[in-house]
């Protein structure tokens, strides 16, 4: 064994001598680079993961552990009370079902519509195409907050060309219902829909036209070609856009607050968590008390964890779909 090793070593030095010191230099270089790389990457990964780890450890602590300077990451009094409290405050079991249903339906609707539009932009030539595509870019660029005040009023006094006013004598108040957001998603104006159109168009443009032309020659109609030939090809980008739509909808605060305010969702529940904790404690003690920062943050960390756990599970299973398809979509200007 030692003999073989010595022989190998010798041969390395031998080779090194033959190459005039180049081999040793190169090997040392490589080792140095990989050590540096390891330290850098380890640090950065820790930076990203640390808040999550911190939340996990905090979420199992009792209030007295939070103030105990000796307790840093492992709780002395292990407890699951925080989870129960956060679940009660966020109305968790109901909110998670609501969130799931809404995110799923919205994501399916958005991606279905965006796929149609993206395909239209990628494959057909029609007058004013450039103009409409500029509009897509504009949709990406315009922050939804710019039009939020007007949308707010738009749905408060909702009407289609004055029809409802003619029939019922007044406009309908659509605020507080789920319908406006479905309408908006159906019109590609939901959360980041411009981006999905852009990505899907980019993907379709990279597929060679031969297959479609063959289908056309064989007498396949436009719609059938799209459904039977192009959709199966586009599966990766559609999955990843769907996952993004789902995840972003899940955590979205802006649209949820504006249109779905009355439906209890995990995202709005989390945003209100600290306030509802204050109200809860006030109800419990009967006097006006301010909740200590540490405790409210502990509950907040627990709530955040409870919201992101489904996403983490999703990510673990669909990690490839998230990462790979973006890198395959070939984004270029």
């Amino acid at each position: 064994m030692t003999n073989a090793k010595a022989k190998e070593k010798k041969s390395f030095w031998e080779r090194n001598r033959l190459s005039g010191g180049y081999l040793l230099k190169k090997k040392m270089m490589n080792t140095g680079v990989s050590i540096c790389r390891f330290i850098l990457l380890f640090g950065m990964c820790f930076l990203i993961l640390q808040p999550i780890l911190n939340k996990i450890s905090v979420s199992f602590m009792t209030e007295e552990d939070l103030y105990n300077p000796i307790v840093v990451s492992i709780p002395e009094h292990f407890t699951t009370e925080n989870y129960l409290l956060a679940a009660e405050l966020m109305n968790y079991s109901k909110a998670i079902v609501n969130s799931f249903v809404i995110s799923l339906t919205i994501a399916v609707l958005q991606i279905a519509v965006c796929t149609l539009v993206g395909y239209g932009f990628a494959r057909f030539n029609f007058p004013l195409k450039k103009f409409w595509f500029a509009c897509v870019i504009m949709v990406i660029l315009i922050p939804p907050q710019t039009i939020s005040s007007s949308l707010f009023l738009h749905f408060r006094f909702f009407d289609v060309f004055g029809i409802f006013k003619l029939i019922k004598g007044e406009t309908i108040n659509l605020r507080g219902s789920v319908l406006p957001y479905y309408l908006m998603s159906g019109g590609c104006m939901g959360l980041k829909n411009g981006l999905y159109i852009f990505l899907i168009r980019q993907f379709f443009r990279n597929i060679p036209v031969d297959m479609e032309e063959a289908a056309y020659v064989d007498g396949c109609g436009t719609l059938k070609t799209f459904v039977c030939i192009m959709l199966p090809e586009a599966k990766p980008i559609l999955t990843s856009c769907f996952l993004f739509a789902f995840v972003w909808q899940w955590t979205d605060g802006f649209y949820s607050k504006m249109f779905l305010g009355t439906t209890s969702l995990v995202s709005t529940g989390l945003a209100r968590l600290v306030d509802s904790l204050g109200a809860y404690i006030q109800r419990l003690t009967g006097t006006l008390t301010t909740v200590s920062i540490a405790y409210s943050n502990c509950i907040l960390a627990t709530g955040t964890l409870m919201i992101i756990v489904p996403l983490i599970i999703l990510y673990l299973f669909a990690q490839r779909a998230f990462v790979e398809s973006i890198s395959n979509s070939g984004i270029k200007m």
């Binding site: 057909f124 030539n125 019109g187």
Partner: peptide, 16 residues
């Protein structure tokens, strides 16, 4: 083709 193109992007036009 132009007509079907417009049909495909019509949701976007309406929504926009």
């Amino acid at each position: 083709k132009a007509i079907s193109g417009y049909l495909f992007i019509s949701p976007f036009i309406l929504g926009f």
